[in-house]
Design a protein around this nucleic acid. Structure first.
Lengths: 239, 239
DNA sequence: TTGAAATTCCGATGAATAGTCGAATATTTG
DNA sequence: CAAATATTCGACTATTCATCGGAATTTCAA
């Protein structure tokens, strides 16, 4: 691997890895293109009212039992106006996660600007995803219990957004393998499945049963445990 | 803990643990009560045709996009006849997983009758669940991508069936802790989340992307890895 | 075998919800 | 402030879910 930095500045010339990391984050953040640009302020407000109302109603009744008319009423507009904004109930349901996923990515990008190690980033990412679910439980209900799995309908826009979540983790895992604290003996995709599956299961269990009570604590404990596990595996492989 | 067995037979007097294990399996197997007993042979055939048709249509279109009329047509009966069998689309959708979950439990119970260690049972359970999903991929699509998460609508019958899945794993984990090869330092519920999340994520990824190609192999590898991890953790805790 | 009772099936129809369209209203802009 | 543009909504159609009463089929006792 060719050495890159020539500059002798004490202030970090960004490494190759760092550049790719930032590129990934940027791509993730820019994934979402605002679908239609609303011209009037009134319209922007209406759009927000619809999204808020939809989130409440979907989380309360579940997507399939929710009625467009209820959402419109909750938003204080007529049914037909809602159709001027979203062409179907499904469209509306799939729009909701997008905004929040992007916000999550932004929060993470912000929290991760500091000079953090790969390990810290991975830990932070997993921990934050659980914490974000706790803070936005209505959204989390929608995403984790209804949308995430059924994305198989190849609603490509949202699918990519969700795939991004896995891509970030995969990147960090591969980097961890380079650094040596994650064993190269295991398939990185399998490792990603373990991490994502583990943290998601904690979130889902919380959403369904409110157990364990404290999701933030449970999430960070699970994250810490999983990272310790990776280190144990690596140490084991060394022998 | 009081010693139990007095009998001196060389042929295993079932231990306390073994008795509780069998009780759990029995309970799981008997969970499902056949809803209505059909009187005519013709009717039994129709019921089967409906279930087969529903599985195909649901797996193809997803539950929410599927139409009752399509399912009836596929089954070769009229729409109204279908309503004589199931009182709503939701009812029908929730009936499907039940039968298969019970079949899975029966398969497992059969495969696990041999004198197996707790560790072998746990490994077998995880491995078999992935393999069963591969063999019944239409059903797996329905369960893992649509039903499992959204069970929160508290459809109690099915919910219990799904909870049973976790109970079996939890039992084996607790037993593993007794035996000492699973660390007592970790919450068994957290450990269960890790195992269930990990194996489910492998299954879900396969359902969505057909990757990795060989689900049976991926499932047994993941199972083996997770059990090794538990052992590593226990060994670590000993120090 | 037969015919009456039990069971299963289906066409006609009602009810609920999704989705469309053009006229009316509000906002922006020159 | 008036024309142009953007937004809203009431009235309407379309689709799908679900019900009901009677016809068709099966079962079974005599």
């Amino acid at each position: 691997m060719p050495a890159k930095s020539l500059a002798a500045e004490p202030e970090a010339a960004p490494s190759n890895v760092e550049i790719r990391w930032n590129a990934l984050l940027t791509e993730v953040l820019e994934r979402r293109k605002p679908p239609v640009e609303r011209k009037q302020a009134r319209s922007k407000r209406t759009e927000q009212q619809i999204l808020n109302a939809a989130l409440r109603v979907f989380a309360r009744d579940g997507i399939s039992r929710s009625r467009i008319a209820d959402i419109a009423a909750e938003a204080g507009i007529s049914t037909s106006t809602l159709y001027d904004y979203y062409k179907s109930k499904e469209d509306l349901a799939y729009e909701l996660p997008q905004a929040h996923m992007t916000e999550f990515s932004a929060l993470f990008a912000e929290a991760a600007t500091e000079k953090l190690t790969t390990k810290e980033r991975l830990s932070l990412y997993l921990t934050m995803s659980a914490d974000y679910a706790r803070e936005h439980s209505e959204w989390a209900r929608l995403l984790y219990l209804e949308i995430w799995p059924s994305v198989f309908v190849s609603e490509t826009e949202l699918k990519h957004t969700i795939d991004d979540f896995a891509r970030v983790i995969l990147f960090l895992i591969k980097e961890g393998m380079e650094e040596g604290w994650i064993s190269r003996a295991n398939d990185p995709y399998e490792t990603a499945a373990l991490l994502i599956g583990g943290i998601n299961q904690v979130i889902i269990t919380w959403l369904l049963y409110r157990k364990p009570r404290n999701l933030t604590k449970a999430g960070s404990e699970m994250a810490a445990r999983m990272i310790t596990i990776l280190e144990l595996e690596a140490a084991q492989a060394q022998k």
